[in-house]
Computed example of a mutant assay.
Amino acid sequence: MHSTKPVRPQGSRLRPVADPLERVGFVSKGDRTLLNQQAQEEYYNKIVERYLRFCSDHQKDLDTAHASLPMSSSNDATSNPPAAQPTSKTTPAAQGVPPPSAELSKLLLSLRKLREGILATSATSLPGFAQRVHYFSIRLAILAQHPPSYFPSLEHCLNRLHSKSHSMPDLEVKDLVSYLILDYACRQENMLLAFELRARARREHAFESQVVDRVLTALMHDNWVVFWQVHKSVDSYMRAVMNWAADRMRRHALKAVGSAYLSAHVDWIVGGCTGDDVNWTWEKLLQEENLGWQKDGDKIVIKRPRIRPPPIPEHTKSQ
């Protein structure tokens, strides 16, 4: 009688197909795949294709998907995009859609590999391709709010890739200069460098932007009304850079309202102070800012007037 061994399912012997973005390594760690121009272009096309799929997968709430990276390492200039945390069975990953933080991290890391490859072959690479990669990378990293992935590229793009012999389109240069000025002002809170860069950009690139001028003025004067007006009017890239200053402008607004009003309508406080009456509620604002104000129907009581005791009658004073 022959002994029988349990049959292992055939599929279990197969290794999962490696992600084409992860198969490529860093040039700085010895991988030579991206030292070839054709390989660079093919890799870039795969990144763009994956990003378009990312946008399609999360089209119902793309802003939230872009903001899904943990913020703890956002201002660390040496950090890679953080890895995604394990997800539950109820997340989109269980349905074949990777969590947005995982996919964003992979895209940003892949773009860093590609930039390394382009930098290593800068003597032979086409400048136009390098400019296109950096412009795409900067804008994606801005939406993801990951400065280590966009800030060095902004300076490299404007100072090295854009030149008289190989100039970028005027509109793209204006975009990059605007992002850099606003990053100095909103994220780094360095108004001196922001104004210096604006002056230099006016000389070197004939840069003019009413949007940037209004944001700088609003930040200098703590003018939260103008700041939120501009915030609502700009595109998603400019708004993402401005978001670095959103917390402090919201607190300036609450401080100003608290010192000037005894009470106000809840919608005016939520919408006016946060610049966003869609994603903010009174309950969220109360918890986030630890306010001591009280809600009374549709009214927020900021402070109650002191009730003075009635004056003492004159005839009782003489007694």
Rank of each mutant, 00 (worst) to 15 (best):
Q95P: 10
V48Y: 03
R250A: 15
M220L: 11
L182T: 00
E22F: 10
L285I: 13
L104F: 06
L104T: 02
G11H: 04
T316S: 09
A77Y: 10
A65S: 09
L126N: 14
G297K: 02
H252A: 12
R132A: 09
S122D: 12
L107I: 07
P309V: 01
Y237E: 14
S68M: 08
P148L: 11
P81E: 07
W280E: 06
R50A: 10
T121M: 04
P169A: 04
V48S: 01
V225R: 12
W228G: 06
R50V: 05
I118T: 01
R214A: 10
L107C: 12
L119D: 14
L262V: 05
E116L: 05
K106S: 12
L69I: 02
S167A: 15
V17Q: 09
E208A: 14
R15T: 11
A102R: 11
S68E: 02
L197K: 01
S68D: 06
L182A: 03
L285K: 12
H146W: 13
G30E: 06
T124H: 07
T124M: 05
N36E: 06
D63W: 08
P127L: 07
E288A: 15
K284M: 15
S165T: 13
T78G: 10
I138W: 00
E314K: 04
L104P: 02
H58Y: 13
L285Q: 14
Y150K: 01
E116Y: 04
L286Y: 15
Q59T: 13
T217W: 09
V177I: 11
L182R: 00
S137P: 00
P147M: 06
A256V: 03
G117S: 04
H58N: 14
P305S: 02
L197R: 00
R50M: 10
P147I: 06
S72N: 05
Y135T: 02
L291K: 10
V225G: 09
V212R: 00
